[in-house]
Computed example of a mutant assay.
Amino acid sequence: MARVALISGGTRGIGAAVSLAFLQAGYKVVPTYVADRAAAEAFRNKTGLTPYRWNVGDFEACSEGIKEVEAAVGPVDVLVNNAGIVRDAALHKMDREKWQEVIDADLGGAFNMCRVVIEGMRARKFGRIVNVSSINGQKGQYGQTNYSAAKAGLLGFTRALALESAHMGITVNAICPGYIDTDMLEIVSDDVLTKDILSKIPVGRLGTAADIARGVLFLGSDDASFITGSTLSINGGQWMG
């Protein structure tokens, strides 16, 4: 029977590529979204997949949403925590709301989603959890104390949950994308893109969403059963720490 893969934020950008990768590999794919209904509908029309809508930063919404998914599709075997937001500002200009929104979505969302599925995975003695962190959680980034903190916290969360879960047949790993050619980079000027970003990527190009999706698909597969608590950096050599 095909495994069920739930991808949060799975209808746009990296998440959409991950959803497609799992679909093409024969999984039952459940993408979620929260804000961009038009993109979710376009993704449904393109793929035939049914997107589910809830805010990963809301524990009760996660609990109810996953109950709905499991009733309709089946227990979640693979969880990809991809959903996240940015609220950029230098710390001396950042208000508490911008801090908390990012922490709740990008770090709290992983707790909420994992907490709801982890008991079922333990009972079935199988699970794959892949947390999408960021190069900026590894090295930091100006104007992103909230985002960098959340994504760095996600790496610690990954390692701790991996230790708790390994003996139950559950692997927990993280992916750290570098700069990826998605709509999140549309606000970056060509000058900044060339001088400040591309010039620092040794392979000389931006990553693609498919580059990330291939890594996530592998870590979510049966072939990755001996990999847990690991961080896979996919950044073109920009950060090797």
Rank of each mutant, 00 (worst) to 15 (best):
A61E: 11
R44I: 09
A210I: 11
A224K: 01
G10T: 13
M113D: 05
I187S: 13
I118S: 02
M121A: 06
K139Y: 03
L206P: 01
Y52E: 04
M94R: 03
K67V: 10
E101P: 08
A72K: 14
R87E: 10
A224G: 06
V34R: 03
Q238L: 11
Q100I: 09
D191A: 14
D223I: 09
F22W: 05
V30E: 03
E97W: 08
V132E: 04
G241W: 07
E119N: 14
G10H: 09
W99I: 13
G140T: 08
V130K: 00
M184F: 14
I187G: 13
W54C: 08
L155H: 05
V216L: 05
L198P: 01
G74A: 00
A174H: 09
A17N: 03
L107M: 09
D77A: 10
T11Q: 08
I103F: 02
G169M: 02
R96P: 08
V29G: 01
L107G: 02
A39I: 04
Q100G: 14
S148H: 00
S221Q: 09
V117R: 01
L185D: 07
K98H: 15
R115P: 06
C62L: 12
K195S: 11
L185P: 06
Y179S: 07
L107Q: 01
A150M: 11
V117H: 07
G229H: 12
Q24C: 05
A209L: 14
